[in-house]
Amino acid sequence: MTKQRQVDQHIGELLSGLLDGELTQQQRQMVKLHCEGCAECSENLESLRVLRKRIGDAALSEVGEDKWREHMNDKRVETPRSIGWILFIGGLLVVAGIAVSAFLFSDEIHIGMKFLIIAIYGGLATLLYSVLRQRLIERKTDKYKDVEI
C-alpha cells in the first residue's frame, strides 16, 4: 500500500472527526488542506454534514416529555420499595416489642439477670450506634474516599 493511499484512508475517518469537532488543531489543518485539493473528500465531508443534520432532525422517538413524566411518577417505581421497607421494619418492631415485653414481664427470669441482659444488649446497641455514626460522618467528610490505591 502506498503512503498516499494510507493517508487517504486515514483522512476518511478524520472527516468525521472534523465534523464532530474532535480533532487537534494540527489534524484540522491537515484535513482542511487535503480537502482543498481533493474533490472526493470535500464532497464526502459535505455529504456527511448533511447526513448528520438529517439524523439530528429526525424523530427517532416520539414518546414526548409528558409520557416520560408519567413513567417517572409511576407509583410502580417507588411504591413497592417503600411498602417493602414499611412491612419489614413494622414487622421487626412488633416482634421485637413482643420479645422485649415478654422478657421484661417474665416471672421466670431473675431481676438481676434481667439487668445483666439489658446491660449487654444496651451496650451492644450503643457500640453499634457509635460505629455507624462515625462511619456516616467519615463517608460525608472524607475527601480521599474515592482515591484508588
Partner: peptide
C-alpha cells in the same frame, strides 16, 4: 434532567 433524556434514551 432525566426528562430531557427520555426520548434519546428511547431511541
Amino acid at each position: 434532567q432525566l426528562l430531557q433524556l427520555g426520548n434519546g434514551a428511547h431511541a
